[in-house]
């Protein structure tokens, strides 16, 4: 028991230290690397909080994909860094900010310490109703059955974000390919890795999706893995990023949401409500939604990292 306490204590101290360092360090590149480290440490914290699904998501998206995104950005912004840094606010505003941030922290700490005991929880209700979905993973049950609308809207969020990113395309390049052209180095290590890893990654992604019904995992984690494999192949120069005007690409982007909506509406005549599943068929339908969504999520995440088109088709 004491070992556990020691572990939790060190982890928390480490997380806070890395967070402070990420904020304080002058070099932005270092800050981004700090953030990647922070994401991985945070995933450990999630495991300690018995939220393995969240840990996987945090490690894959919070730590992994966000870091790739930020590293790419920081390299491109390097030339403007010193100019922007010169604008650091004066001592008074820093003090005010510290007071504000400090009081928010104090208020939150107070609330955390006074949270009711025993804690209110929906776990019993989830446990009582999860049988109707025949899922073993309660989190997947919440995401795809009880609170399916949130998950549906989240898929819409991803589409909106991608549309918003694409708005930033310079007019002449509309319909072009996102990201720079990556040269393939046939004998390079990266090309080797990009040939070796994706088959493995795809297997793992399908596995993560499949077990997500009963164990930690699901479409987001699997989709992120696929996105990472795709990005790896693109950055190694093995495949090209597709032009954003491609019809198949558009179709694949909305596939998950369309399947979700279709099954949702099928629930009206078959199960009596939008987003309800017919008795006994919940699990296969949910897996169908998850499989379609995984593809759309993978493509969307990958394209979000690549950014708006930068060259012609």
């Amino acid at each position: 028991m004491n070992m556990a306490l020691l572990f939790d204590g060190s982890l928390i101290v480490l997380i806070l230290a890395v967070a402070v360092w990420t904020m304080a360090v002058r070099n932005s590149f270092a800050a981004v690397i700090g953030y990647a480290t922070y994401g991985l440490l945070l995933a450990l914290a999630w495991v300690r909080l018995a939220a393995v699904d969240a840990a996987l998501t945090e490690a894959a998206i919070g730590g992994g994909l966000t870091s790739v995104l930020l590293i790419r950005a920081v390299v491109r912004l390097r030339s403007s860094e010193s100019a922007a840094r010169a604008e650091t606010p004066g001592r008074v505003s820093r003090l005010l900010a510290a007071v504000l941030a400090g009081s928010v922290t104090a208020a939150l700490a107070l609330v955390v310490l006074t949270l009711p005991e025993p804690a209110p929880t929906l776990a019993p209700q989830v446990a009582a109703n999860i049988a109707s979905t025949s899922l073993g993973n309660a989190v997947t049950g919440v995401l795809l059955s009880f609170r399916a609308i949130d998950t549906l809207l989240e898929a819409v969020v991803l589409v909106f974000a991608l549309i918003a990113v694409w708005t930033l395309t310079p007019d002449p390049l509309w319909g072009g390919r996102p990201g720079p052209r990556y040269e393939l180095d046939e004998n390079g290590m990266l090309a080797y890795l990009a040939r070796l890893l994706p088959p493995l990654g795809i297997v793992v992604a399908v596995y993560v999706l499949w077990v997500g019904a009963d164990l930690p995992g699901g479409k987001f984690q699997a989709g992120t893995l696929l996105a990472a494999m795709w990005l790896l192949a693109i950055m190694a120069g093995l495949v090209e990023a597709p032009p954003i005007s491609q019809r198949w690409l558009r179709g694949a982007l909305v596939l998950g949401t369309v399947v979700f909506l279709a099954i949702g509406f099928a629930g009206v005549p078959l199960a009596g409500a939008f987003l309800a599943y017919p008795e006994g068929h919940a699990k296969p339908l949910i897996i169908a939604i998850e499989a379609a969504s995984m593809l759309s999520i993978a493509l969307t995440l990958g394209l979000l990292v690549l950014g708006p088109p930068e060259r012609g088709a």
Binding site: N27, F29, R78, M189, L190, Y192, L193, L196, L197, L200
Partner: peptide, 25 residues
């Protein structure tokens, strides 16, 4: 094995970047 592979690739890439463009800031 995966960590070995990733580590080897990443360090090789970093080393090559250093050789080509000098040490990073």
């Amino acid at each position: 094995l995966l960590v070995l592979l990733a580590g080897a690739t990443a360090s090789q890439l970093i080393a090559r970047a250093v050789r080509r463009s000098g040490p990073p800031v």
